[in-house]
Amino acid sequence: MSHFTAEKKANIFKTHGGSATNTGSIEAQIAMLTERIQHISAHLKTNKKDFSSNRGLMQMVGRRKRLLQYLSDNNLQSYRALIEKLGLRK
């Protein structure tokens, strides 16, 4: 996660969580996981045999899936808005 600067993290949390210090909101956590997943996916396109990064990627995808399921169960409008904003479903 070294490619994320404090400013970039704060911007993600501000955009999706409401403020730069609201790191615990479900929307902010999902947005941060999505950024990390995209970064590792790009890494794995050039390093196909990096199996430990692939395992970490699968764990992050699973965690994001569980958080999205929780959000859809508790706040459907927020879930739909977040999916649209992040472009996760087609």
Rank of each mutant, 00 (worst) to 15 (best):
A20R: 14
R36T: 07
V61S: 05
N75V: 04
I83H: 11
F51G: 09
N22H: 07
Q29P: 04
R80W: 12
I30P: 00
R89F: 12
G17Q: 00
A20D: 13
N47V: 03
N22L: 04
Q38P: 04
L57T: 03
I26K: 11
L76Y: 13
R64T: 00
E84K: 15
K45R: 12
E35L: 01
D73P: 05
K49E: 15
R55M: 08
Q77W: 07
Q59S: 10
R63Q: 14
R55Y: 08
A20H: 11
A6P: 06
M58I: 08
F51D: 09
N47D: 10
S78T: 12
Q77N: 12
S19I: 00
L86Y: 01
L67H: 01
Y70R: 10
F13G: 01
L68W: 03
F51I: 09
R89A: 14
E35W: 06
N47L: 02
E35T: 03
Q38F: 07
A6G: 09
T34E: 05
R80A: 08
T21W: 01
L76D: 07
I83F: 08
I12S: 00
L44W: 01
Y79K: 01
K90A: 14
S72Y: 14
K65G: 11
I12Y: 01
I37Q: 03
I12C: 01
T15A: 11
S52D: 12
T34R: 05
Y79Q: 02
D50W: 05
Q29G: 07
Q29D: 01
M60A: 12
N47A: 05
S53C: 09
I30L: 04
R63T: 10
S78R: 08
S78A: 11
R36S: 09
K49C: 09
K85V: 01
Q38G: 06
Q77K: 12
M32F: 14
K49N: 13
K90T: 12
K90D: 13
S72G: 09
G24N: 15
I30M: 03
L67Y: 02
H39E: 07
L88S: 06
R89P: 08
K9N: 09
M58S: 08
A31L: 02
H16W: 11
G18S: 04
K8G: 06
G18L: 03
N47P: 06
Q69V: 08
K48C: 05
K45S: 14
G87L: 00
L44C: 02
V61A: 06
L57W: 00
G24Y: 08
I83L: 15
K9L: 15
K90H: 12
L76G: 05
S41C: 04
E7P: 04
L67P: 01
L76F: 10
I30H: 02
L68C: 04
V61T: 03
R66H: 12
